[in-house]
Amino acid sequence: MAMKKSRRKRTPLERREHLRKLLLGSNEKQGVLLNIVVYTLLISIAFIFLYPVLYMLSTSLMPKEDLLDTAAKWIPSSIYTKNYTDAMQTMDYWNSLLKNLAIAFFPTLAQVVVCSLVGYGFARYNFPLKSLLMVILMLSFLLPAQLTIMPNYVLFANLGLKGTIWAFIVPAVLGMGFKSALFILIFYNFHRQVPNVLLEAAQIDGTSGFGAYFRIAVPLSLPAVVTVILFSFVWYWNETNLTQVYLGYASSRNNGLTTLLIELQKFETSYEALYSQWDASPNKLNGAIRMAGTMLSILPLLLGYLGLQRYFIESVDKSGITGE
């Protein structure tokens, strides 16, 4: 009612003002023009971001005739799943998947426990050399791991850890796994925000330092624990450069541990060893099979991400990485 009334009374000047507000926005509402611009940009950038993934998905389902046929640029003429079975065989999929899970899971477990302890120690206690240790922590975060990879490789080889899961677990237990420094900093930030009163009360009640940590600090830091578990798992899963070195650079398949991404990296070699590759061979490696292999290598994490997306998106916010 009120709206109608005001519309009847509107002078040309007011009408123009109303239009301006509608298009350009006012204090209360975002303008239509701005909205159009924002949506257009977001949707087109989303398409650009997804373009490689969409291409991967559609190509991986194409029979090889489609690859040359420009008419079938996006939609496969038929769903051709043999690409996937071939790729699975090439990557020794289920076996590699299990090994990959082990490589990502166990170090993550060790890492989250140790980084939480160390982060708490730095946040809650004062002790000699603390500032020096913090500087070293920062340095180990900032400098590329390639700086220390040669001595560590020699060390692992000498200790007989090279190529075993222990090459990942041992550093993680000592707070030096992949990106451990970052995780220690996240826990440090988190534990610092816990009010001291709580912990002091616990200590007056006769709880030891460790008791207070387990009973009060750990339950309060659950969001940080979730963040660290997720990112640690993803990084262990995805880190290929360092993993390759720890596994012994040239180790061949069935000769110990591997990850799906390492299998993807040597896809061509493995494929050519499996299927003969003379010129007219019906089994010649093509883009569709490669894309199926790529798809397979990202699929486990992709599914995990879609299932746990909320925790991933909230994680950065909760990590306290933005300060305060």
């Binding site: 140790v114 302890l117 160390v118 708490y120 120690g121 730095f122 809650r124 206690y125 004062n126 002790f127 603390k130 240790l133 070293i136 922590l137 340095l139 180990s140 220390t148 560590n152 060390l155 550093p171 237990v173 000592l174 707070g175 030096m176 451990s180 220690i184 330092g209 940590y213």
Partner: peptide, 16 residues
């Protein structure tokens, strides 16, 4: 405090 950070101190001394 030292007990809490000890694992990392060992790790960082050796691996870093």
């Amino acid at each position: 405090g030292w007990l809490f950070v000890l694992p990392w101190v060992i790790g960082v001394s050796v691996f870093f």
